[in-house]
Design a protein around this nucleic acid. Structure first.
Lengths: 250, 250
DNA sequence: CGCTTAGTTGAGTTCGTTCAACGACTGTGG
DNA sequence: CCACAGTCGTTGAACGAACTCAACTAAGCG
């Protein structure tokens, strides 16, 4: 279990951020970009499987994901693990730790991940000097809350088959918006991750995924889940999909 | 199903807010109080069982709970309901709708509830003029996220007995901090609510609660759950409890 | 007094679990 | 280059948790 995280002092200026041109994100003023650029302290690269943040830690940093896939999770004493949500480019991580002291969940990289590092001490000055960015951070927190609401509904009230369909459709939609697929719609995830997200055992998860595959909705391939029919998955889950909306990020 | 909500133009000044003296909340400066008082537009009273906010609505308001118990929930097409969290004094409701347009969950009163009404249009001016209060709103959103994380862990990975113990211990701790109990530790909730929170059927919920009662952890009484041993519940759930920390509210 | 809501209990069924074993693939060291 | 261990996915069988169906009690209310 690699925990080390190579720190690069390498720093792409925010004005040239590869994320900003994506139609999924809102546009930023010169003024905002300039401030964020000063707020940014450096970059960090994590290998697949590396732990980015640990439950219980008092992180001095706040991160924005630049590229790659990861996930947030919590564990019980005896090792039972629950994946709470997935993190993708544009997502802010470590906000809880920054605002309230201690992290209460861990974050792990699913693929190689690169992150922007921000200084937690400067967050208050962002609130004072750039209300629009402060509002954005609240927006991001409220959005995360929405997603957690939907996950809760899913785990609590959907059947195993619906749950699996929902999760994969969800990851697929997010990945599409962020332009994360090149040709093949491959989500870099193992069945163990799916099981730990859905609150199912790995055996039953496997059998459930086989049912989705039998209906030609997905195909399991080389360390990942290939989505064949995103709409079919949404229909199976009874899920409306994500809202079409420009979102902010820091 | 009562949906009407009697609107009072009655308005307690924030400086005399009954919540502010509670040790659970942080202190506020004169300046902050003055601003919040102007931000407040009125009060609203909801009967037990009344719907305060509806999924899909574009609410023009933001509320802070002044007194009473309520809950947030989402429903699937076919009527399956998932309770996401409970709302209690000091909680902000309608933030999602305010920031992102449309509410994606409903809120219902569990007991008679009174609320402060805020104008959604003035939220931006709060961000511009009072960074500390803006930070507080982010704090509240991040706190809600934490609670949802814990609920997700609970539903996904705890057994039925652990889940039930966790939920009741959670409601009990929150109620205690807010001084909501007078003598008897009675949580105003039905077994149907518990079932819809835990993602269980009502029959199995009943049998699970009986087990907790058999261990003298709770007792079911006149329209509610009486807590006999909060520590025992936490232990049974393997839950650490809420952090001891002053929290903000608006 | 009947009607409704909330809680209780038993019986039978379904869904999901654990246990166990095995195949395919990857990376590593001798 | 092969042997070996480790991870990931797959499958069958037996068990257990949670569900549905159904019937019944008790309390509250018009």
């Amino acid at each position: 279990m690699p925990t080390a995280k190579p720190t690069h002092s390498f720093k792409t200026p925010c004005e040239q951020c590869p994320l900003r041109p994506l139609p999924h994100f809102r546009e930023f003023s010169r003024d905002e970009l300039e401030f964020v650029s000063k707020f940014k302290r450096g970059e960090l690269a994590a290998d697949a499987g590396a732990t980015i943040l640990v439950e219980g830690a008092h992180s001095a940093h706040l991160f924005t994901v630049l590229s790659g896939w990861g996930f947030r999770y919590k564990m019980l004493e005896d090792g039972r693990r629950q994946i709470l949500n997935y993190v993708m480019p544009g997502d802010l991580i470590g906000l809880q730790g920054t605002i309230m002291g201690e992290m209460q969940h861990s974050v792990e990289a699913l693929s190689p991940v690169s992150l922007c590092i921000f200084e937690r001490d400067k967050l208050m000055s962002l609130y004072i000097r750039h209300a629009s960015l402060a509002f954005d951070i609240t927006w991001i927190a409220a959005q995360e809350e929405r997603i957690l609401d939907e996950h809760l509904l899913s785990i609590g009230r959907r059947t195993a088959l619906e749950r699996a369909a929902y999760l994969i459709a969800f990851l697929f939609e997010r990945g599409k918006k962020l332009n994360l697929f090149n040709g093949r719609n491959l989500i870099p995830i193992t069945q163990q991750h799916i099981a730990d997200t859905l609150g199912l055992s790995i055996v039953h998860t496997n059998k459930t995924l086989k049912k989705l595959a039998a209906r030609d909705l997905i195909r399991w391939q080389e360390r990942g889940c290939e989505v064949l029919d995103g709409e079919g998955l949404k229909q199976m889950a009874g899920w409306e999909g994500l809202r079409e909306e420009k979102r902010p990020f820091v």
